[in-house]
Design a protein around this nucleic acid. Structure first.
Lengths: 237, 237
DNA sequence: CGGTTGTTTGAACTGATTCAATCTGTGTGG
DNA sequence: CCACACAGATTGAATCAGTTCAAACAACCG
């Protein structure tokens, strides 16, 4: 059973709205909005930014999901971070050692790092805001490390599902979600093989925790799923 | 065969020297040095900072090694970051979800986040410097994720050894190192059991890549060890 | 010397991988 | 509209890496 993710039309997010929702003053948000930028469409699972290339740019995900990934010596891929709509990928100085791809088809705004730095330098409040986002991403990284290092494969997948709902969630803890990931992507995030991810998902369904209908996942037992995943959402602030 | 790490006397690092060595202007470094602070000794593997407590403080590791750790629902521990002498742990806003401990006995300078923020706000160059450290730590996090997610247990341990040499290294790629870790700590970093770490270390020795003499590790075949670990030090900048 | 912490080893077990084949949904071009 | 190609999902069997449990051993400390 396979369902297209091509047509997963996530609502586009306005830059100013996303930033104010995240707690930034509207005045400062519109400063960032004024940075000259271009909008591009990013296809899923296609090269977008390759590891090792210099990237003096700031990316803002207007819709869809991006991922940062690295490749081990043996060519095995690990996704190391996700950016959902309304989140950004900050500039790195020098070449970044990770690549960037779409998880689903996404719209991305690209601005120059120079413009961004200039504005941030001029407004300490803005610096503190960016700082806060960085801390959040750091906390997520740490949680992922716990996930890969210390949880079994079932808990890892369950945890990713919980986190995805929480990060895409429109506030209410919803009982369903359009699953944006292929099983291979889930494997690349949780450090497994797609074969095993498939078995884990089947298991979760057999246990009555989730139900899959095409590319939709219905959550049938939130408390148990969260317990299984030992998901404590406080790291998402 | 067990050797004390208690007496592993790492040289203490001056704050100004560490910061200038990392590329900060001496003038700015001494501004940070002027922040009122206290010096404390941190014992290895003892509670120092517990997860969940608010921490409006900045820590500077003068000597030794600190770690950040988290605990999974099942009580399994994962070390998510290391801070070697000369590195810092920045303040988090609100309670931090990770705890802090010593890997070895360490000296730590503690300053208040408020003083730190004030100075950083006033000096954009300083902000950019801190930014750079954050990017480096992010890159290390990502590499650890690849380590835990995609490498086998031998490569994980070998990678940690390589990284440790590179991060403690006084420039020259040395052929020996006082191993600062217990096998349990290596397990907590690489997401394994101490039993398996023991076997991996024995393996590495059997293969002639390392030799262990008490708490000292002699590196007998750097190129092969790095290949095995797929260690590419560029992520350390 | 005795207590504590860390290391080493063995045997049994299990979770996850690997390899390979098959199945299913989606989009494309005729 | 149908046939086909393709990407992703599903399943089984064999294998293996790493865990678990348990016991013994070594080094250090007071």
């Amino acid at each position: 059973m396979q369902a297209s993710r091509r047509s997963a039309t996530a609502p586009a997010v306005s830059l100013v709205d996303a930033l104010t929702a995240a707690g930034l003053e509207r005045r400062l948000a519109s400063l960032l909005d004024d940075i000259p930028h271009t909008a591009v469409a990013v296809d899923p699972r296609r090269p977008f930014r390759v590891p090792g290339a210099p990237r003096r740019e700031i990316l803002f995900v207007r819709s869809g999901i991006l991922c940062k990934y690295k490749t081990d010596g043996g060519g095995r891929r690990q996704i190391v971070a996700l950016r959902f709509a309304g989140e950004a990928i900050l500039p790195s100085q020098g070449p970044a050692d990770f690549g960037i791809q779409g998880i689903v088809r996404s719209e991305v705004l690209i601005g120059s790092a120079k413009d961004f730095d200039r504005i941030v330098d001029a407004h300490p409040e803005l610096g503190r805001f960016v700082w806060k986002q960085i801390l959040r991403n750091e906390a997520i990284s740490y949680e992922w490390l716990v996930n890969c290092g210390r949880r079994d494969s079932t808990a890892r997948v369950a945890h990713l599902l919980c986190e995805t709902v929480a990060r895409t969630g429109n506030g209410a803890e919803r009982d369903r979600m359009i699953n944006p990931f292929t099983q291979q992507q889930i494997a690349d995030i949780t450090g497994q093989t797609s074969v095993n991810v498939n078995r884990v998902l089947a298991d979760l369904q057999r246990q009555g925790l989730i139900e899959r209908r095409g590319r939709e996942i219905l959550f049938r037992d939130w408390p148990e799923l969260r317990r299984l995943a030992s998901f404590q959402p406080n790291y998402l602030r």
